[in-house]
């Protein structure tokens, strides 16, 4: 029972840890499926987190915080879009730039506006997305196995957590069942085919990039006004890159993304739990090994040692009309 309890707690913490990854991973999926490589997920998340922290602190409204996060993140996404789509610039470089700008500006403005070493003020619960207790939580807790799973893992999360899990099937549906999705997938594989079909490649990509912005906004807001009670400097701490790794790991597919993000979130949760504990046989597992594992797994996958992950054919390539 002790082991089961541990598993329940670890899984619960994995759910919480995987939510920002999920949002960011899906965000990257839209962009990269449209042919725009985005290593600036980190920056957009950070910008979103900062905006949410500021606005929620000033207005006292979590919803306005979320809105601000989305707007700021869309703004950064549009900068990336302008550089990548209109200017046909190097998408990697643009992503690096976004990360720098976001990291610098959030810390600078945070300090200038609030003078708390880059932090935004501590938020009261009224200005956050609080944990929601689903109906019957207490009554079913007694049921073996399923009870704790429902009460401790499924119930008791903020609205944004549930939103992230809705976002997966929604993205799948958009991608494979709608006109927009068809065109999105096409423009990332062969923009020429989309262009000759009379659809604007740039407009498609801009729309994708905006969706990326929205989802990164959610990811950022989750960090600062749901998971924590305020923004702190560089609080994304590489999550944008783990999300990117998860995207590669998920082979750019929405349902796989759920698996990849949850796996990486779970590894993170296990790493935290194992810290300083002795395991039989292996002994103590270094935290760092757990931290590196998502990246190592992704590299191994990329190298084709376990399956093969092939990016959308046109991703990273600016579209120029040519014969």
């Amino acid at each position: 029972m002790d082991f089961f309890q541990t598993l329940i707690l670890t899984t619960d913490s994995a759910v919480r840890l995987s939510v920002p990854l999920l949002f960011a991973c899906l965000a990257g999926l839209y962009s990269e499926r449209s042919g725009v490589v985005d290593i600036g997920l980190e920056g957009k998340m950070l910008g979103g987190a900062f905006a949410a922290g500021c606005v929620a602190a000033v207005t006292g409204s979590a919803w306005l915080g979320l809105l601000a996060a989305i707007l700021v993140s869309i703004g950064l996404a549009l900068v990336h879009g302008f550089a990548s789509i209109t200017q046909r610039g190097n998408q990697i470089v643009s992503g690096v730039a976004i990360n720098f700008v976001a990291s610098g500006l959030t810390a600078l403005l945070g300090q200038a506006w609030f003078s708390r070493g880059g932090k935004t003020p501590q938020l009261p619960n009224t200005a956050r997305f609080n944990e929601i207790t689903l109906p019957f939580t207490d009554s079913v807790r007694g049921i073996p196995v399923l009870g704790p799973i429902y009460s401790d893992i499924i119930s008791g999360h903020s609205l944004l957590v549930y939103a992230s899990f809705v976002a997966i099937p929604l993205t799948w549906w958009v991608l494979y069942r709608t006109r927009f999705g068809l065109r999105l997938r096409a423009v990332g594989e062969n923009p020429g085919a989309v262009d000759t079909a009379g659809i604007s490649v740039a407009w498609m990509r801009y729309r994708a990039v905006v969706i990326t912005g929205i989802l990164c906004g959610f990811a950022g807001a989750y960090l600062s006004i749901a998971q924590s009670a305020g923004f702190s400097k560089d609080m994304t701490a590489g999550k944008g890159f783990i999300a990117l790794a998860a995207l590669v790991f998920a082979k750019w597919k929405p349902v796989n993304a759920l698996g990849a993000c949850f796996l990486f979130g779970f590894l993170d949760a296990v790493g935290i739990r194992l810290q300083g504990t002795q395991l039989p046989v292996i002994g103590e597992v270094p935290v760092q090994a757990m931290q590196a594992l998502p990246y190592v797994l992704t590299v191994v996958l990329l190298a084709g040692f376990i399956g093969k992950s092939i990016p959308p054919k046109a991703s990273g390539v600016p579209y120029t009309k040519e014969r």
Binding site: Q87, S94, G104, Q111, G118
Partner: peptide, 25 residues
């Protein structure tokens, strides 16, 4: 003091953006 060293990170980002990603503007 209001302009922390983070300003430099922002400037770097902007230089990367304008001189790199948007070099042909």
């Amino acid at each position: 003091p209001k302009i922390t060293r983070d300003m430099i990170i922002s400037i770097q980002g902007l230089v990367i953006l304008f001189a790199g990603a948007m070099e042909h503007m």
